[in-house]
């Protein structure tokens, strides 16, 4: 039986780091690519600290390095130098599968293009991160948790639908439910409203703000100032340099 009984609205409390330990802390995080003979530094000595419950927006033009930073924070990429502490633990020495495991447990992704799997139903998409934790969740467990997460994004009536049968806003809400289902330490949103019309975009931003109000830590990348205004803190990126707005 499921040991999970907490309502989805409860603030993130599991695996709580030591007092005052930020969820995310980077020290001079740098990512350089070699393109032929030229080295391109996409991210230059970024220092970023995000505490639990914060809503941080990263703004910048395309090519400014904001996606590079988000990939590093999402454990999809290795830094060239510097260190990244996720919930106090350095990640630079972790191997590929350890990163995958940590990603599945502690990070929730929301993408611009939703990235739902077309052949899976809404709830199966939501339960996907649980399915990759071998043996931890039985089928019924996965379904229960996915239902709760879908209820939280007000899609309890779309549990068995396929992504193709859903509107853009509904698809993004399924994706948000997928990011919520594991109770992650941080939700990383990459242009979450970029593929939506403005009304739907506003709706999604309202949902993210609600989740933040419930205690979720959110880091969002956007180039849209009106979207970025929803965040409690704002960083600007330019030419790989990270700078916080006052």
């Amino acid at each position: 039986m499921s040991k999970y009984n907490a309502p989805a609205a409860v603030p993130v409390a599991r695996n709580k780091p030591a007092m005052n330990e930020p969820v995310i802390r980077t020290e001079k995080l740098t990512r350089a690519y070699s393109m032929g003979e030229n080295a391109i530094t996409a991210l230059r000595e970024a220092d970023l600290t995000v505490h639990a419950g914060e809503f941080v927006a990263l703004m910048g033009a395309s090519g400014s390095g904001k996606s590079t930073l988000l990939n590093l924070l999402g454990l999809l990429d290795h830094a060239t130098s510097g260190e990244y502490f996720l919930e106090g633990k350095p990640v630079s020495s972790l191997r590929r599968d350890e990163l995958a495991d940590l990603r599945g447990r502690r990070i929730g992704f929301i993408f611009q293009n939703f990235n739902l799997l077309a052949r899976l139903s809404a709830w199966e998409n939501v339960a996907l991160p649980l399915a990759y934790r071998q043996g931890e969740f039985k089928h019924q467990d996965q379904l229960d948790r996915a239902r709760e997460a879908l209820a939280r994004v007000r899609l309890e009536h779309r549990v068995e639908h396929n992504p193709m049968e859903l509107s853009g806003g509904e698809r993004q809400r399924v994706a948000i439910a997928r990011a919520l289902v594991t109770q992650p330490a941080v939700i990383l949103a990459d242009e979450p409203t970029g593929n939506l019309d403005s009304n739907t975009g506003v709706e999604i931003m309202r949902l993210l703000k609600e989740l933040n109000a419930e205690g979720r830590t959110i880091i969002m990348v956007t180039h849209d100032a009106s979207v970025a205004r929803n965040a409690s803190r704002l960083y600007h990126m330019r030419d790989g340099m990270l700078k916080e707005d006052e």
Partner: peptide, 10 residues
Amino acid sequence: GVRQAVGAKQ
């Protein structure tokens, strides 16, 4: 890529 992002190991 999506599967890897949500925690699928190799």
